[in-house]
Simulated assay, not measured.
Amino acid sequence: MSDTSESGFDPNPPRRNFYGRRHGKTLRQSQKGYLSEDLGELRPCGITLQDNPERTPVDPAAIFGNDRPVWLEVGFGGGEHMVHMAATYPDINIIGCEPFINGVAMLLGKIRAAGVTNVSVHPGDARDLMDVLPDASVERAFLMYPDPWPKARHHRRRFVTPEHLRPLARVMRPGGIFRVASDIPDYIRQTREEVPPAGFETLDDTAVAWDDWISTRYEQKALREGRPPHYVTFRRL
């Protein structure tokens, strides 16, 4: 059994199942180049068990070389939103987590094209990153069009469950903002039910996107298929 501190930080988290795909279609040669040439420089050290077996907390300032506010995107998909935020807010740092390697390759191409430098990429499960981030180290977090896991028996795999939300609440500073966007009504239902008990209050719950929003490929697909998006904003208590 792991020894969890009073703050909720667990230096020896239990082994966990991974939910979702890691690989998709064959990568283009250019995407393979992004992975081999760019990922190493952008990948934060100390996240995986291999490079941090003691699960020592990782200081975001050591990742970025500065003490700017840190934002976190959970499952960045193709990277449109993450790169847009990095370019729109150059005075923040943003870490993106995505285990789907095709999405990582797409993000790296967008980072090159945009020329943003205030980004770090964890090509893995966000839970591994939250295991080692210090308490109250994240100012803003994003969950944009997460995997819906539509079957009832798979709802426990959704991010909006205590297994994920409690670690997120630990790493977020008081007053920090957590945004969720989805086109799946039942996912929004579960979000409304599960997020507040984890230590958040609801600020906004609407069909109108945020002022600084960029529509992603997943949102465009939802609109084409007649599923209206929904946007919920929470604040860490």
Rank of each mutant, 00 (worst) to 15 (best):
R153Q: 14
T202N: 04
L143T: 01
G199D: 12
E73I: 06
V74W: 00
C97W: 03
V83Q: 01
E73S: 07
E194M: 15
I95E: 14
E193Y: 05
V104L: 04
C97P: 02
D186G: 12
V132A: 12
A141E: 10
D211H: 08
A169D: 03
G176R: 07
R166D: 11
A207L: 09
G115Q: 09
P174C: 09
R157A: 11
G115P: 07
P150H: 10
G96L: 02
I95M: 07
V180D: 09
D183I: 01
V171Y: 14
V121W: 14
D131G: 01
R189F: 03
E139G: 13
L133P: 13
F142M: 06
D131P: 01
C97L: 02
M106A: 14
A136D: 11
R158T: 13
N102Q: 10
D131K: 04
M82C: 07
H164E: 00
L168I: 07
R173W: 06
R192S: 07
A169L: 06
D183P: 02
V116S: 01
P196L: 05
R173K: 15
H122Q: 14
V104M: 10
P167N: 01
E163M: 08
T88Q: 15
S182E: 03
G96A: 03
P167H: 11
L72P: 08
E193V: 08
P146H: 13
G176C: 07
D186A: 12
A136W: 03
G75E: 04
D211C: 06
D125Q: 13
V138C: 08
R112A: 02
F100L: 00
C97R: 04
L203F: 00
I111P: 04
M144H: 04
P196I: 08
G199E: 06
I94L: 15
E201T: 13
A113S: 15
P90G: 10
A136Y: 01
I101N: 02
D125C: 14
V138Y: 09
L129P: 06
I101S: 01
G124P: 00
G176Q: 07
I94R: 12
I111E: 11
R157P: 08
E80S: 04
Y187W: 11
H154S: 02
R127W: 00
P196N: 07
I184M: 04
M144G: 01
G115K: 07
A86T: 04
D204H: 11
A126F: 01
M144S: 10
G78E: 09
M172N: 15
H122V: 12
R112T: 09
L72W: 10
L133Y: 10
R179L: 12
H81A: 08
G175A: 15
H154K: 10
A152Y: 02
G176N: 09
P150W: 11
E194V: 03
V195K: 09
M172A: 12
P148T: 02
R158K: 07
I177V: 15
T206H: 05
S120L: 06
Y187R: 08
E163F: 07
R189H: 05
R189P: 00
